[in-house]
Simulated scan of single mutants.
Amino acid sequence: MAVEQELYTIRDYIRWAASRFSEARLFFGHGTDNAWDEATALVLQSLHLPWDCDKDTLSARLTLVERELIVERVGRRIDERLPLAYLTGQAYFCGLCFDVNEHVLVPRSPIAELIENGFEPWLASPPNSVLDLCTGSGCIGIACAYAFEWAEVDLSDISAEAIAVAEKNIKRHQLEDRVRAVESDLFEGLQDQSYDLIVSNPPYVNAEDLSTMPAEYQQEPEIALGSGADGLDFTRRLLKEAAARLNDGGVLIVEVGNSWPALEQAFPEVAFTWLEFEHGGHGVFMLFKEQLTQIK
């Protein structure tokens, strides 16, 4: 007998999905870290219900169409190793919901914690202009627009498909008056614009790590992950060009993940400030414009 003919309530499907995920030994790293939370997220998002819905709701019986949808998504999560966000078309970052698809990374950067803290103590005052470089879904830049309500924010990415997703999210959050998306390879498409704050989660995975990543990460766009043998092809360019695009007193924040030792080795003369995170994360550095002007 088919599963959808045996199970009926939300609670039934969360338990069933969690068991299937544990049995399949999935990798979790796109918003959850265990089978139960992954199953809960899949079921509730498929039903358009909030994470904190009333517990009594879990006893509600589902329609046949709803049951079939959940069974299909659980199957695809296991068989195709698709990240949950690609199945539901949405992901959360800084408490905000974003549209996502296979053309952008699933939002998960520890930079979210910096945004929520207003980038203190690195910014002397709230920025008037922000650039989210390698924006993907636009989540970092849009979250910055919420954090700094007077700031003009640019979202840039080399991928036209990613820019289309970012534009959709700008409209979703009704920020068209302050946020724009620009297709650009690094700074090439941004004309002579300069910024008080540049934030970037660029491709930084080295070739060895890229080839051995879990199957779920292999579903994400390679252009947003890999960056040469040591993972630093893009970051090298960024460090040499960023000073010219920062206003006086401007700040650069960049995530390089596990490539941070290679970065320090490549630029031994640079005093990177490596930021610490209360909720987990590593490999994010901060530099002031004055430090960047010394990089050759």
Results as ranks from 00 to 15, higher is better:
Met1Asp: 13
Glu6Gln: 15
Glu6Gly: 10
Leu7Asn: 07
Thr9Phe: 03
Thr9Lys: 06
Tyr13His: 07
Trp16Asp: 09
Ala35Met: 05
Glu38Val: 05
Ala39Glu: 06
Ala41Glu: 12
His48Gln: 15
Cys53Ser: 13
Lys55Ala: 13
Asp56Val: 14
Ser59Gly: 14
Arg61Tyr: 12
Arg61Met: 12
Leu62Lys: 01
Val65Thr: 14
Leu69Pro: 00
Val71Gln: 11
Gly75Cys: 07
Asp79Gln: 14
Asp79Cys: 03
Glu80Met: 10
Leu82Ser: 13
Leu84Ala: 01
Leu87Tyr: 02
Gln90Ala: 12
Tyr92Thr: 14
Leu96Thr: 10
Val100His: 02
Asn101Trp: 07
Val104Met: 08
Val106Cys: 01
Pro107Gln: 07
Ile111His: 02
Ile115Cys: 04
Glu116Gln: 14
Leu123Cys: 10
Ser125Glu: 15
Asn128Tyr: 09
Val130Phe: 02
Cys144Ile: 03
Cys144Asp: 04
Asp154Glu: 11
Asp154Cys: 11
Ser159Met: 08
Lys168Arg: 15
Asp177Cys: 08
Arg178Asn: 08
Arg180Val: 13
Val182Ser: 07
Glu183Arg: 15
Leu186Glu: 09
Gly189Trp: 05
Leu190Pro: 03
Gln193Arg: 15
Ser194Pro: 00
Pro202Asn: 06
Thr212His: 12
Ala215Phe: 09
Tyr217Trp: 11
Gln219Pro: 01
Glu222Asp: 13
Gly226Lys: 00
Gly228Met: 02
Asp230Met: 06
Arg237Val: 07
Glu241Thr: 14
Arg245Asn: 05
Gly250Lys: 00
Leu252Lys: 03
Ile253Leu: 12
Asn258Val: 11
Leu275Asp: 09
Glu290Trp: 05
Gln294Tyr: 04
